[in-house]
Design a protein around this nucleic acid. Structure first.
Length: 203
DNA sequence: AGCACGATCTGA
DNA sequence: CAGATCGTGCTA
């Protein structure tokens, strides 16, 4: 395995958001390896983005965003859900990428609730993804480059033609410019079906 | 100290 | 399309 290091994350956020597609998100939990290929992300551009938690400066919640790239920024929303982000850019430039969906690969039978009902078995949704991988706020600030508990492994970059872009989800509170901006990235259905590695055997 | 609301999901 | 459900940030 080839774990993505700090230099991968300390770069342009929009660029990384696209490059993260197809990368392998791995969680080690209670001795089990749970993993999946990232297939949807959203970029949040800190002070320049009214949809970002960091838009109005540093607070207790978003402090991790102002820190070192490659750490997990995890927060609690709607009174019941956790969402996983990866911090990007240089320190004090509070940008992050929300991981919205993965195609499960390893440990499917240990993933809570998300074997999928459609047959596609895609963990499609940032909160469902956290439940599937047993990610919660205890991992907030966790160093994803250390190779323990939670990390991301290098995988072939998805060809440009299979990368789709569009507006982000659930940010109606943001200014029109930021609502409309194409800062969500996802792997084309065709790529997911044909190109992504076959999943581990079903339980 | 009080209050409004959220980078969501589920089930009707 | 409403309800769940509570931490967070803003106002006072």
């Amino acid at each position: 395995m080839n774990i993505l290091k700090h230099h991968f994350y300390a770069r342009d956020t929009l660029m990384i958001a696209g490059e993260l597609l197809g990368k392998k998100l791995v969680r080690k939990y209670r001795g089990n390896i749970l993993s999946g290929l990232i297939c949807e992300t959203e970029a949040y551009l800190g002070p320049n983005d009214s949809a970002s938690h960091a838009f109005r400066g540093k607070t207790a919640r978003n402090t991790v965003m102002f820190g070192r790239a490659g750490r997990a920024y995890i927060y609690f929303v709607y009174g019941m859900h956790y969402l996983l982000n990866i911090v990007t850019e240089e320190e004090e430039n509070p940008c992050a990428i929300l991981i919205r969906a993965i195609v499960p690969l390893d440990g499917l039978k240990h993933m809570q609730r998300y074997r999928g009902r459609t047959g596609k078995e895609l963990t499609d949704g940032p909160a469902k993804l956290c439940q599937a991988l047993a990610v919660n706020k205890s991992l907030n600030g966790w160093d994803l480059t250390a190779g323990q508990k939670l990390w991301v492994e290098a995988q072939p970059t998805i060809p440009e033609r299979f990368i789709k872009k569009g507006r982000r989800i659930g940010i109606d509170y943001a200014e029109p410019v930021d609502r409309r901006a194409a800062r969500r990235f996802w792997a084309d259905e065709m790529y997911i079906r044909d190109m992504m590695p076959k999943r581990a055997k079903r339980a």
